[in-house]
Amino acid sequence: MSNVAVFDQNAGMGVLAESPLAHVSGVKGGHTPGVVIREKAFLGYLTLRGNSEDVSFQDGVKQALGMPLPTEPMRLHQNQHKASSIQWLSPDEWLIVVQGGTEYETEMALRAELTGHFAVVNISGGQTLLTLSGSAALEVLHKSTVYDVHPRNFPVGKAVATTFAKATAIIRRPTEDTWELIVRRSFADYCYRWLIDASQEFGVDYE
């Protein structure tokens, strides 16, 4: 167990939490919207840093999360139920996304398993996750980012930090037809408005 002062930053159900997109009203795109956008609010986010070549570090992460540490660039690993994930951010940095409310126990599990030089930081609340699906979701991404999101370059299980509109975002592809965008809290409104505008021509549904 690492000797670090930690506390549960989740205030619990008694305190009102507000998503960065709490103020936006829904958009209805008719019977067959080309793009369906949903926000997955209040997920738990942790950044993990450490030495990926250290076998005990790899083993510890696998023990604590039930998912192997992605050591190849831009790889996204999900657990069996696809409820939590770990993705490669840089050679010594990973982003862990877990169900809201479980971030503290995840952090404690990691701290119990890992030894030596590493860092786990709870960054929940600093960003939000939007899912894009529908027949035109890929078209909207093509319009919005400089990264090549063509399926030949972006298979399922890839996660890329890049520029989205004029903001930065993480684009992930957890399944064949769903795309996830992780955007900064302060850019959430901008990215939302961009998405609605870019999706307008295909018909967009957001609630």
């Binding site: 660039p73 831009m74 840089s90 050679p91 400089v146 990264y147 890049t162 520029t163």
Partner: peptide, 11 residues
């Protein structure tokens, strides 16, 4: 050299 890919200059 860390991502192992070509990326746009704006990144």
């Amino acid at each position: 050299p860390y991502c192992g890919e070509h990326r746009e200059e704006s990144e």
